[in-house]
Design a binder for these strands. Structure first.
Lengths: 180, 180
DNA sequence: CACCATCGGTCTGTTCATTGAACCCATACG
DNA sequence: CGTATGGGTTCAATGAACAGACCGATGGTG
């Protein structure tokens, strides 16, 4: 949601957060970044977002310190978008909201499941590992896999195709990247 | 963010959740509902939201099963908006997003603090009580209070004034309600 | 060299959502 | 009767999102 004029007057941390990630598409972009999407074109085809909007959102998230630009090619100069430490801390809210959506807004259950990469146990409601206990599992120790109880993906793009296999969060998806 | 045309194609529980609570103002309305706001006029003055938008959002959240209408006066017929069980389960995502905003998007720290009503201990990152341990504290056992280290509220409306005192979540705020 | 493709954008015109202000209606108050 | 309150609806104007065309740098192919 556009940050508009009014959120400034809300004395609330939630309003501040929504100014950063509350606009349309923003959280989905961050989600894709957790999935390992890094390149403009991959965001574009995976999300089906208008190019101009993607440009604006990526720049906004970089300005807000959620993403950073990292060059991956010198000539021609190309860069990907990666999560900063601040961005990585969005994993908790994002995971919980996703779980809520899976419980209450998705018929047929969620499309993706998340497990602790170290032991294979599915994460609990707050993103912790029921087997290992303790604090929520950090995203780089989370393995996502498609929910086998559901049909195939609605989408057919390189990112969606890469994600039909179990995939550790934050690991760059294999697009045209792999030069071998 | 408007639910638009495209989120439908996202095979992702997060996109489903955002269709319900992702539009501008929606999450702030839900937050206010946790704070004990129930009446149209209280939402209106506390949020500073256009009336037409408030009407649309409240109806949308009722249709989505997040809020329900409950009459509190027969003549003239008046009703408040209360969280359903589905809505109550948004406490986790909302709390975490709020904490993230407090850490990364709010200078001077958060405006409100949240403690376990049964023991007074401040909640941890996932909304659990460090003293009592275990699962996250359900919202009806949470006490909110203003952060004393900050200045007063930016706003001056009945709701903001009621919230300068420590207040249990979900307890209706004392507006013109109290007939005594 | 001409030709085409890729990547990451910008530009343009149209549609859609949000905004603020005004208006509406039923009840209650004096 | 005149005014106030609660909960809306309607309206014109603004701003954001959309789809699609266009652009500039590079690199590969014949």
């Amino acid at each position: 949601m556009a940050l508009g004029t009014d959120y400034e007057l809300q004395d609330c941390a939630l309003a501040r957060a929504l100014e950063v990630v509350g606009e349309r598409w923003s959280l989905l972009i961050v989600r894709d970044a957790f999935y390992g999407v890094q390149r403009f074109n991959d965001f574009l085809t995976h999300l089906g977002i208008p190019r101009a909007v993607l440009t604006a959102r990526l720049n906004g998230l970089v300005a807000a310190g959620v993403l950073r630009k990292e060059p991956y090619l010198q000539t021609p100069l190309r860069h990907g978008y990666l999560l900063t430490d601040t961005g990585l801390e969005l994993w908790g809210p994002l995971y919980q909201l996703s779980r809520w959506g899976g419980r209450h807004a998705t018929e047929g259950g969620p499309h993706h499941l998340f497990a602790h990469a170290d032991c294979g146990t599915d994460l609990d409601l707050v993103g912790a590992c029921p087997a290992c206990g303790g604090a929520p599992v950090p995203p780089d120790r989370v393995l996502m896999r498609p929910n086998a109880a559901r049909g195939g993906s609605l989408r057919d793009d390189p990112v969606s195709r890469a994600l039909v296999r179990p995939h550790p969060l934050l690991e760059p998806i294999a697009s045209a990247a792999a030069p071998a």
